[in-house]
Amino acid sequence: MKEPADKIADLAAKHRDRPGALLPLLHAIQDEMGYIPPESASIIASALNLSSAEVQGVITFYHYFRTEPSSIPRVEICCAESCQSMGSDKLLAHARTVCDVHPVYCLGLCASSPAMMVDEKPYARVTPEKFDSIMKKAAS
């Protein structure tokens, strides 16, 4: 088993020569480890010749990057206007009684609102009842 710090260093070495390497590198770390571990900033900074503050700034700027392990499965519910017009408020309130939910703003499924994603799998026209059956399936 490799230590997380070694994994991060390996990924940094792999990506460091790409133009604009930081975003693809952060994606690679999150894809592999599920989140961006706290020790990442300093390891990346030395590999990419940046300051730790710059790297930390980028990690925290983007909503997509997580600095803590995520709940499993990861549930994202759209809270933008189109889904609001079809009752996403009710769906969100219901979902929050069941599990951890991450609000997102638009999944591009607006003609079949309200929409959500569970571990990158999209669902549309989601009612509270449909939500329960999706979660039941995801758990099994």
């Binding site: 133009p19 604009g20 390497a21 930081l22 975003l23 952060l26 994606h27 990419l48 710059e54 700034g57 980028v58 700027f61 983007y62 909503h63 997509y64 990057f65 997102v104 703003y105």
Partner: peptide
Amino acid sequence: AAGAYVCGEETAMLESIEGKR
């Protein structure tokens, strides 16, 4: 991208591709 709406603004997008906030 990484979930920042403002990166749809063209210059913010360029910064993002360059690996910045």
